[in-house]
């Protein structure tokens, strides 16, 4: 008796499974990686990488402008180009992560190096100005003849 019930329900189960499969396929077709959700996930990832680079003193002007271009393309309805653009931003940002440490060090050396040069002007002036002045004073009078 239970066996007969299972057999009669088989078409129903098959139909339910078919509906679920169709729904899954439809959902995946509507939200592929290139869909709206996928695009915004890419934008978030790209923006996160850009900020990380920026906070480590890597210039991200170009990357930000390209991300902006991707957003404009998306608004214009050029979805494929927008996704390609934002993916290229992510790839380039990933490549730049390798120089984060170097950039931080370079910027610190540059910034405090320039500041140190400015600060050294005062002691250098104190030491060198009288010597330079005296040297110039003597050179200007090198051909003078002393008379009684």
């Amino acid at each position: 008796m239970p066996r007969r019930i299972q057999v009669t329900r088989l078409p129903l189960v098959a139909a339910v499974l078919a509906v679920i499969a169709i729904a899954q396929l439809t959902a995946s077709a509507q939200a592929p990686p290139g869909g709206s959700g996928g695009f915004w996930a890419h934008v978030r990832e790209a923006y996160g990488l850009i900020l990380e680079l920026h906070r480590n003193h890597v210039d991200t002007t170009e990357l930000t402008m390209r991300l902006d271009r991707a957003l404009v393309l998306w608004d214009e309805g050029n979805r494929t180009a927008a996704i390609e653009q934002v993916q290229s931003v992510i790839a380039e940002a990933e490549a730049l992560r390798s120089v984060e440490g170097q950039a931080r060090l370079r910027v610190a050396l540059y910034k405090y190096g320039v500041a140190a040069v400015f600060l050294s002007i005062a002691p250098l002036t104190y030491v060198l100005l009288p010597r330079v002045y005296i040297t110039a004073w003597y050179r200007a009078r090198r051909r003078w003849v002393v008379e009684r």
Partner: peptide, 26 residues
Amino acid sequence: SVLAAATVARQDYVAVYNASATPPRF
């Protein structure tokens, strides 16, 4: 000189790299 040094120290700087080169070129 102190004013100049303070101005430089207060500013934020970033290092510009060419990302299309491998490895990125400063």
